[in-house]
Write a protein that binds this DNA or RNA. Structure first.
Length: 280
DNA sequence: TGCCAGGCCTTCC
DNA sequence: GGAAGGCATGGC
């Protein structure tokens, strides 16, 4: 595992690093992790349940086998972009995030950018979460659905959320009043989980796919945002105009069982390419 | 100053 | 059911 790639690739928004430790807030715990010759070292407050870290970092995913599968794929299909992405970011793992936090985070991400998303989430947590401390470092838990429902649209707008404040307020209200358990969708089939998510305010195809991929174990999901759409058009569709739906179906078909990892490696790869190499 | 950003909702046809 | 327009805010 490579922690810089895994925690810095933009799939989760509550991690930072001092070059030695990675500091994060996950659900209701402050934690810090680092890699040592003995493996993954983790400290947390309050102490996490046994197996949490294993689940969060998806340590049950056989990354070597997945990379071998993607390697086979790009050799057979001549996909040089996936090849370079895998070579450059080897060790990037998907995370298994908390579904509620993931859902709100990706509604926050609508027409935004990673620094701003990070700021909004920190403000929301500071205002509506509970205080945590680990080795003198202060942080705040991610707010519960009840806390965000009670916050109201204006309270959330004040967290730099803009029009997303209303989405999140109504979304939280729906989850509380209908007693929806987002995590229960883990046991649903991907199309059913996706459909259920899209019934919620502020959740369209892209957000539903991100939540499916990053928190609900939906292996087939291939989220298509502006970056993926633009890059797919540029690199794989000879600059022909192509809809989100077409790119999504193309990605799911093209990468099959590796869609989830292929998408994340490609996304991280293209975000770090110089602009002129993509759009000369 | 004006454009753009990890889309979605609403309206209109 | 598909195509436009509007949406808050900050960065560049």
């Amino acid at each position: 595992m490579e922690l810089d790639h895994t925690l810095g690739c933009g799939q989760a928004f509550r991690w930072s690093s001092d070059g030695c430790w990675h500091f994060g807030t996950v659900c209701s715990a402050a934690l810090k992790v680092r890699l040592t010759p003995e493996g993954l070292e983790c400290r947390s407050s309050p102490p996490l349940k046994a197996g949490f870290i294993r689940s969060y970092f998806r340590l049950d995913d056989d990354l070597d086998a997945i990379i071998a599968g993607m390697t086979r794929h790009f050799r057979e299909k001549g996909d040089r972009h996936l090849k370079e992405a895998v070579q450059r970011y080897r060790g990037l793992r998907l995370l298994r995030q908390d579904p509620w936090e993931c859902l709100v985070s990706y509604v926050t991400s609508i027409v935004s950018n990673i620094p701003k998303i990070t700021r909004c989430i920190e403000k929301m947590s500071r205002k509506y979460g509970t205080r945590l401390e680990l080795d003198g470092r202060e942080t705040y838990s991610f707010p519960s659905p009840e806390a965000l429902a009670a916050a109201g649209a204006q309270g959330l707008k004040d967290c730099e959320l803009g029009f997303r404040g209303r989405y999140i307020s109504e979304l939280a209200g729906e989850v509380v009043s209908r007693q929806i358990d987002i995590g229960a969708l883990r046991s649903a089939a991907y199309p059913d989980a996706r459909k259920a998510l899209m019934q919620l305010m502020g959740v369209g195809e892209k957000v539903a796919d991100c939540v499916s991929l990053f928190s609900l174990d939906k292996l087939e999901a291939f989220p298509v945002d502006r970056w993926v759409q633009r890059v797919a058009r540029r690199l794989f569709f000879d600059d022909r105009p192509v809809s989100v739906r077409i790119v999504r179906e193309w990605g799911m078909e093209k990468y099959g069982p590796y869609a989830r990892y292929a998408q994340e490696y490609l996304f991280h790869y293209v975000r770090h390419l110089p602009a002129e190499s993509l759009f000369p």
